[in-house]
Design a protein around this nucleic acid. Sequence first.
DNA 1: TATCGAAGTGACACATTGTCACATTTGGAG
DNA 2: CTCCAAATGTGACAATGTGTCACTTCGATA
Lengths: 203, 203
Amino acid sequence: MPTLTFYNLPEEKKQKLVAAAEQEFSRVPVYEASIANIVRQAGIPRGSFYQYFEGKEDVFFFLLNTQAQKRRRTFFSLLEKHGGDIFQTMTEMYAILLQEIPTQENLQFLRHAFLNMTHKVEQSLAEMFSYGDRNEMIDGLRPYIKMSALNTKSEDELVHVMQIIIAVTMRNIMEKFSRNLSEEQAMENYKIELNLLQKGLCK
Amino acid sequence: MPTLTFYNLPEEKKQKLVAAAEQEFSRVPVYEASIANIVRQAGIPRGSFYQYFEGKEDVFFFLLNTQAQKRRRTFFSLLEKHGGDIFQTMTEMYAILLQEIPTQENLQFLRHAFLNMTHKVEQSLAEMFSYGDRNEMIDGLRPYIKMSALNTKSEDELVHVMQIIIAVTMRNIMEKFSRNLSEEQAMENYKIELNLLQKGLCK
DNA sequence: TATCGAAGTGACACATTGTCACATTTGGAG
DNA sequence: CTCCAAATGTGACAATGTGTCACTTCGATA
């Protein structure tokens, strides 16, 4: 987490630092990124950087969490729009992500995030779909989801349903970027898999 | 890929190097690992290391691929044992992994592999379940899988079925290690999710 | 045993990291 | 307004790691 000092920074300086970090993490994956490049680009001294962040991972997850939070709003409004249908929601969400990530300059770092997925990255990105940890996931989502359409015995299973959907979604995005699929091809694959999930893999 | 020179090395020296690498990658994730530590432990000069491998990633994926190959044999024999039932097979496979990884000293590096999952790591580990790329996956698997039990229109969908199962399995292993779940708890979660996959998430 | 290509070796130049002693700014008390 | 302490800014520095390269040694073959 960034320090308080960082949040207190004048907006302009903060933005410049964020932009520099986005640029560096778009160039290479986190562990190849160089703090030297970030501070050079942002025009701040090296020492200052360490006053704001613990290291490069810290900045990276700050950027990632910021994105996840933004997407969460989209997710919940889509969920309302589709009357709580999680599959329709995810289909549209996936389409939006696919359309936005490759076109917006400052989102390029997300490509590396998906290609170099770690447990922490998945956790951060999973927050697109709910608040905080596993327990809050049920409480946060339940009011929005149309449970009657789901094949779950208990409400606990809702967590599993979501985790399955998230896992499959993540893998699809990863594949989209790693195999450089067209938007159409990626969409088609995703729809097939969501459909299989709905109907079940077995007869 | 390791160089030919590496493969030609006397077995003892090769083993010592592999052991040293396993040890280092068990200590920390790839990108924190130090070649200096590996060569020190293996008792070889730094220059030699670069004669065998391109860098630390190269050694790491060599270890990972070796493991994946070993597991593939297990996977196919289980598949035969269970008469082509992919879900029974995966359940037993998961149990074996859960039991072996935490107990075998030289497999500790797999924990870091799962926790720091990248596209490349997933690709390597996915080879546990089939040969080479996507196309070969169908041909390699089809003879073993009991297709009649699956809810697939075309055989192409078999690829999607496998990818869904792999994605969900990977996520479960990741969660097992990141949340330090007991073997029993992890197994229970996995069974719930496999069951949901079979029956379908929707009514 | 002479020769030559392959394999081994470790010092080196360069990059990156996190820290720390010192400089500067800021805001509140007198 | 002045002063001081705490907060913030700064960049040189030690420590560590990386990949390379000129040189040495080995071993098979004539």
